[in-house]
Computed example of a mutant assay.
Amino acid sequence: MQYAILCYNQEDVVGAWTKEEDDAVMARLMVVQTNLAKQGKLGPTARLLPTTSATTLRKTAGEPMVIDGPFAETKEQFLGFYVVNCDTLEEVIQIAKDLAIANPGVGSYEIRPVGVFFPHGAPQEAIDA
């Protein structure tokens, strides 16, 4: 089963890290990622740019509205994600704990099963897998 691990943190705190602090966090996260890749469990990952670079299309009752910035005003922002292949929820929870240990400060990791669908049929590589 594929799971998405959505990473939330306080963007102002993370954005205030020095290059050295950021590099140290990324190095600790890379240890976790390398271990997952060796096990064949790591899928796509992404680190999102700050919410100040976001654009949101907000669906309303009328015409959709395009606005600058993130959709929700929250204390923690969605900063990135991992997709992992795990046999059990307990396994993905342990991975999220490892990521939390590697990343200092407060924040949260939301875990969701991923339902994969191909709107135009499965690509050949998915069929061959």
Rank of each mutant, 00 (worst) to 15 (best):
45 T>K: 09
82 Y>E: 00
57 L>A: 15
53 S>D: 10
55 T>Q: 11
74 T>P: 06
88 T>N: 03
33 Q>L: 00
77 Q>K: 14
50 P>A: 12
84 V>R: 03
38 K>M: 13
57 L>R: 13
28 R>Q: 10
71 F>M: 08
43 G>L: 04
65 M>A: 13
80 G>A: 04
31 V>G: 08
41 K>F: 07
80 G>E: 00
27 A>D: 13
34 T>R: 13
51 T>G: 15
73 E>C: 03
80 G>M: 04
70 P>I: 03
90 E>K: 13
69 G>H: 09
95 I>E: 08
35 N>M: 06
50 P>H: 11
37 A>S: 14
95 I>W: 12
58 R>I: 02
69 G>I: 07
80 G>T: 05
53 S>Y: 02
89 L>T: 13
37 A>D: 15
33 Q>Y: 02
65 M>H: 08
85 N>K: 15
81 F>Y: 15
53 S>F: 02
38 K>N: 15
68 D>V: 00
66 V>S: 11
41 K>V: 05
69 G>W: 09
63 E>N: 12
65 M>Q: 15
60 T>W: 09
36 L>W: 06
62 G>Q: 08
64 P>Q: 09
96 A>E: 10
59 K>I: 12
44 P>I: 05
51 T>V: 13
56 T>L: 09
58 R>P: 04
48 L>E: 05
60 T>E: 12
37 A>P: 07
65 M>F: 01
89 L>R: 14
36 L>E: 04
27 A>S: 11
48 L>C: 05
78 F>A: 01
46 A>P: 01
77 Q>S: 14
69 G>A: 08
28 R>F: 01
71 F>I: 04
81 F>D: 00
85 N>C: 07
75 K>E: 11
93 I>L: 14
39 Q>Y: 00
88 T>P: 01
46 A>Y: 09
61 A>H: 08
82 Y>S: 00
29 L>D: 04
55 T>W: 03
30 M>D: 15
43 G>R: 07
92 V>L: 12
38 K>A: 14
27 A>W: 02
94 Q>C: 08
95 I>M: 12
39 Q>I: 02
35 N>P: 00
97 K>H: 14
52 T>H: 11
80 G>P: 05
37 A>Y: 09
46 A>R: 11
96 A>Q: 12
65 M>Y: 00
72 A>P: 04
85 N>Y: 14
90 E>Q: 15
54 A>C: 10
46 A>F: 11
55 T>A: 07
94 Q>G: 10
45 T>D: 06
87 D>K: 14
53 S>V: 01
37 A>E: 15
64 P>V: 05
37 A>K: 15
39 Q>P: 02
27 A>R: 12
75 K>C: 02
70 P>E: 02
38 K>D: 15
87 D>C: 03
70 P>W: 01
45 T>F: 10
74 T>I: 06
32 V>C: 03
75 K>T: 12
73 E>D: 09
92 V>S: 08
43 G>P: 08
48 L>H: 10
67 I>P: 05
76 E>I: 01
32 V>Q: 01
41 K>D: 09
63 E>S: 12
94 Q>P: 06
55 T>K: 14
56 T>F: 03
40 G>C: 05
62 G>H: 08
51 T>K: 10
54 A>W: 01
28 R>D: 06
54 A>E: 02
58 R>K: 15
52 T>R: 15
45 T>H: 11
79 L>N: 02
